[in-house]
Each structure stands twice: as structure tokens, then as C-alpha cells.
Nucleic acid binder design. Structure first.
Length: 394
DNA sequence: AACCGGATCAACCGCCCGGTA
DNA sequence: TTACCGGGCGGTTGATCCGGT
């Protein structure tokens, strides 16, 4: 039977939008909301396909769009989420407020992908390229596998952290009456005072606080995988050498953390939105998380590029207290480290030698990368130690 | 100044999915 | 249950920009 085209293409304009068209579209949506995109062009007096109008609105005209340079935190977030989610740009975009999936996709393809490739990381798998080239190389492939695994673990950890921030902010803003109003607005029609139908799941609410992403709950999905699948049948993510117990630790940690603060009702800390009463000031969870993280993080940056490999996962399940934080921080450094940081060896000596060789070959590029990624680490460092969330929000 | 090639990004295309009659 | 519709998503294209020669 086939699909009918979304609109009659004959006589419709294509290509770049003119400012006049933009104004028409804006004026119409401000006055009437977009309603049916298919019907919109005729009503708005545009010789455009409805789909084209929707894209123009969501990617360019929408008022809650931030344009311009991506911050370091945004870059880091994209890389880490991509490690977990792959090319699910819309899902990634839900964690980068005011950025569109299209913009993130473009930025990945034009900047980050190349940068990772340059660093010796396969951008699609987030594995070191050496593993792809020679899987028989025991040490390297093992380390590359660790990289991949840690990418996933780190991403999951970040998801949990992000959820906590959102929880914290929502609770801080609740003032139950406002919250109630807010909750009523979510999932229902826009307020009558405005006819504008905003696109689904904008990440900021009327209070300016982050809203839970509507289209993705990675943590829940992540936990669901673990909850529903028996051990040993969970595919790649589970077939890990190390962190099976780390997840439990992380989960328990989050739950305990939130429960200890009296914040969580039920078993899923990440999805509890209803707790109203005894609310701590925003960001206390972050102090808790960041504290441990920072304790383990201190001195890490110095080691990161110095040939030590604090991210080797072996001790994570055995070290008490800060193992998860160290694991996460270590991976962050590894993932964001330069090509030299990516190279792995059992001894570390070999790595130093290789590093010296590289210094002879092209030290400047390596130094630039080190500086660049060090700055990222520093920004993570500083943001983690403050009340503000360590990433995702600017 | 002209040309060229790479980089960038807005926009398009086709597929997929959820809702609904 | 099924066919259709509307909208969303990810991949790709092509126009434009920009730096190098």
C-alpha cells in the first residue's frame, strides 16, 4: 500500500528559510501553537512542507535554544552518553538543555568524532583502535575491553548523578503548590495563558529547573536490565570481568544516600518525585557524591598522564569507600585522556617509553590534548566540589 | 585575486513508532 | 485487528564558509 507523502510536494519550497518565512512561522505558532504540523503551512501562509516547518521550529526558531560553542562539560557529556547510547541523539539531547539533537549530531560528526579518532579511539565503539586491529594482543585488548566496559559504567553512573540533581532541583523548588501545578502541566495541554504548544520534553520547566527527560530514563532501563536478566545472560554489558558488584555498590550507594537523607520513597531513588516535606537545600546529594569522588580524585589528574593507570578495574570491587568514585573518575580521565593516556600496558614502564617516543615524534599535539583534557578534568573537578551539579547543566 | 579542498551546519529524506478510528 | 496518520528520529546531502596555496 505504501505511505502517502507527508504533504503534497508539488509547488512547495525547499532549501534555506528566509527571514520572512521565519517570521510567518514564528507569528503563527506564537498566536495559535503549532497544532497539526501538516495543516500548519497552509494556515500560516507558508509554501512549505509541515515537516520542514516542524524542523525549522525545533532546530532553529524555538525560543529555548542555546546556540554557539559547546562547553567542555557539554562535550564531556556528549562523549560519555554516546558511549552508552550510541547515535541516539534525541536521547542525548535530553541531557543537554537547550541543545537540539541535530546540533549535537552535527557537533559529534564534525568535532568530537574526529577528535576521538585522532586520539586512537574508535568513535563508534569507544574502544581503542588497537583492539580492533589486533584482537590477539592480550594486554591491549583487555584494556580496550575495560575501556568499553568502563564507558558503559561511567555513563550509567552519570545518569544516576544527573537524576539526583534533577530530583534535588525539583524538590528544592517545591513549594508543593508550585510543584503540583507543574506536575499538572506536564503531560497535559499547555496553560491557557499561552497558546504555544512547545515541543515535547523541553528540559526546563516554568521555574527554570530541569525536568525529567520524557523520552529516556537510562538509569531505569539500565537497572531494569539488571533486575530482569539473570546473571550471565545479560550480553556484553554483563559479561564483564569486573564491575558486576560495582553496579550493586553504585545502586546501593545511591539508594542509601537518598534514603539516608530521607528523600526517597520506594525503591527507585531516581524516579521518586513525590517527596515533599523535609527537603534539604539543593545539592546536598552532590556534596555526598562529590566528596567521595573528590577524595579519590585528588592527585588523580597528576597521575593520569604520568604513566600510572589508576583506572585498571581490578581493585574496584575490593576497595572500600571510594572505589566507585575512583572507578568513575578514572574512566573519565581515560576516556577523555589523550592518545597516550589511552595506551595501556601491564607494566606502565612500557607506556612511559612509548610516551617518550611520541614526544619525539609529535609532542606538541600530545601536549595540546593533555592540556585540553586536563582542563576538562579540572572543570569536572571544580564542579563536583561545589553545590552545583558536576555536569549537564550550565 | 582566483582557485581548491576541507569544515560546518541547516535542511531534507526515508524509516519507524505510537495513537486512533 | 488493522490500516492510516502524525510526528519523531537518525542518516545524509548540499550550500556556504574559511583557510591555504
Amino acid at each position: 500500500m505504501g505511505r502517502s507523502p507527508c504533504c503534497d510536494k508539488v509547488g512547495l519550497k525547499k532549501g534555506p528559510w528566509t527571514s520572512e518565512e521565519d517570521q510567518k512561522l514564528l507569528a503563527y505558532i506564537e498566536k495559535h501553537g503549532h497544532g497539526s504540523w501538516r495543516a500548519l503551512p497552509a494556515k500560516a501562509g507558508l509554501q512549505r512542507c509541515g515537516k520542514s516547518c516542524r524542523l525549522r521550529w525545533t532546530n532553529y526558531l524555538r525560543p529555548d535554544i542555546k546556540r554557539g560553542e559547546f562547553s567542555l562539560q557539554e562535550e564531556q557529556t556528549i562523549i560519555q552518553l554516546h558511549a552508552l547510547l550510541g547515535n541516539r541523539w534525541s536521547a542525548i539531547a535530553t541531557h543537554l538543555p537547550k541543545r537540539t539533537d541535530n546540533e549535537i549530531k552535527n557537533y559529534w560528526n564534525t568535532h568530537l568524532k574526529k577528535r576521538l579518532a585522532k586520539m586512537g579511539i574508535d568513535p563508534s565503539t569507544h574502544k581503542a583502535k588497537s583492539e580492533t586491529l589486533s584482537s590477539a594482543d592480550g594486554g591491549h585488548s583487555r584494556s580496550a575491553a575495560n575501556l568499553s566496559h568502563m564507558a558503559q559504567w561511567e555513563s550509567a553512573r552519570l545518569e544516576a548523578e544527573a537524576r539526583l540533581v534533577k530530583e534535588s532541583k525539583v524538590r528544592a523548588g517545591s513549594n508543593s503548590a508550585i510543584l503540583q501545578q507543574q506536575q499538572q502541566q506536564v503531560g497535559s495541554s499547555p496553560p491557557s495563558s499561552s497558546n504555544i504548544q512547545l515541543p515535547p520534553a523541553p528540559l526546563t520547566d516554568k521555574l527554570g529547573g530541569p525536568m525529567p527527560p520524557a523520552s529516556l530514563d537510562v538509569l531505569r532501563a539500565w537497572q531494569g536490565v539488571w533486575a530482569t536478566k539473570p546473571a550471565g545472560t545479560q550480553g556484553d554489558m554483563v559479561d564483564l570481568e569486573s564491575p558486576t558488584s560495582t553496579l550493586s555498590f553504585a545502586e546501593n550507594r545511591l539508594l542509601l544516600m537518598a534514603a539516608g537523607a530521607g528523600h526517597v520513597e520506594g525503591s527507585n531513588a531516581a524516579t521518586s518525585h513525590q517527596g515533599g516535606g523535609n527537603l534539604e537545600p539543593e545539592g546536598n546529594e552532590w556534596k555526598c557524591l562529590a566528596k567521595d569522588r573528590m577524595e579519590c580524585f585528588s592527585g588523580f589528574s597528576a597521575e593520569l598522564f604520568g604513566g600510572e593507570a589508576p583506572w585498571i578495574p581490578e581493585p574496584y570491587t575490593s576497595q572500600a569507600g571510594c572505589s566507585w568514585a575512583q572507578f568513575g573518575s578514572g574512566f573519565t580521565g581515560m576516556l577523555l585522556g589523550d592518545a597516550g593516556g589511552q595506551r595501556t600496558s601491564e607494566t606502565g614502564v612500557e607506556e612511559e617509553e612509548e610516551e617518550e617516543e611520541e614526544e619525539e615524534e609529535g609532542a606538541t599535539e600530545g601536549e595540546e590534548n593533555k592540556n585540553y583534557w586536563n582542563s576538562i578534568l579540572n572543570s569536572v573537578n571544580s564542579s563536583s566540589s561545589s553545590n552545583s551539579p558536576p555536569m549537564f547543566y550550565n
